[in-house]
Amino acid sequence: MNAQNIEQFKSEYSTEQLIEVYRQMLRFRRMSEKTAQMYQQGLIGGFCHLYTGQEAVLAGTFAECEKGDDHITSYRCHAHALACGVDEKEVLAELTGRATGISKGKGGSMHMFAPDKGYWGGHGIVGAQVPLGTGMAFYHKYMGNQNICVTSYGDGAANQGQIFEAMNMASLWGLPVLYVVENNVYGMGTAAKRVCAGELHQRGAAFGIEGEKVDGQDFFTVAEAVKRARKYILENKRPYIIEMDTYRYRGHSMSDPAKYRSKEEVQAVKENRDPLIRIYDCLVDERGVKESELKEIDNIVKANLKESVDFAVNSPLPDAAELMTDIMPK
């Protein structure tokens, strides 16, 4: 598939739409930063995986998905919830283990779901979301829907055997699934190049599944690829793989000091490939948006976030009776 000319693609987005994209990416970033703070304050327990640095992958993907599409991902799932339309309040209340959390305080950091918004979690077994997401694509084919399931996994999960099993069936049965490989360079503390043979976007080749690798730090590049992939999937009744070349600024989880990489390496990505700076520069330099206007958006995002933190920490803990509910359907 030939990529559309990126300048032409950019021009399809109005300034208003791009400001909204910037606002979304800021929401992901600010909530991630706040989550780290709250974790350090002891307000959040357990494992906690942040999305800082990878924002363009989500923003670009969602910009080109349609209502009725499904999304499923790993345990690095907080920003995904926001992207699907879940409020910060419900995410932070879940992170703090409150009754008002999106999963009533029973799922925590790794398990957030909003099926009414097409969001299916939130899965803690590395790679397990891939057959599940392939099954959701199976549903769309079964029902004759013109929708896809965006199934995200990382470079670490990419080596799980069940992914190949799922791809085999997705290809055999022509399932409308978009596999998004978020290659953030490290699977926990192990560099992808140490454990992944070959290219991740070519992992479907043996099954006849096409794929490509794009710059996951650039909103427009991601969005253009997803738009094209979605059209290809539905028109050709074929799955597709997009490998997002991205990077996480924090460790694998909050307990990871990330000593397996240099500070300079992280700093270089922050300075040269930061997804927020790119969209910010585009708005200011190419669209003539005032920096004060963007500052104001940041202020509003931060104010909303503060309100959400207050909501979360002031929410009650789950009632003891909740221990034994939601195990079996009524």
Binding site: G101, G105, K106, G121
Partner: peptide
Amino acid sequence: KYMSGGVV
């Protein structure tokens, strides 16, 4: 079902 607070 449990992890999702009952919604899945």
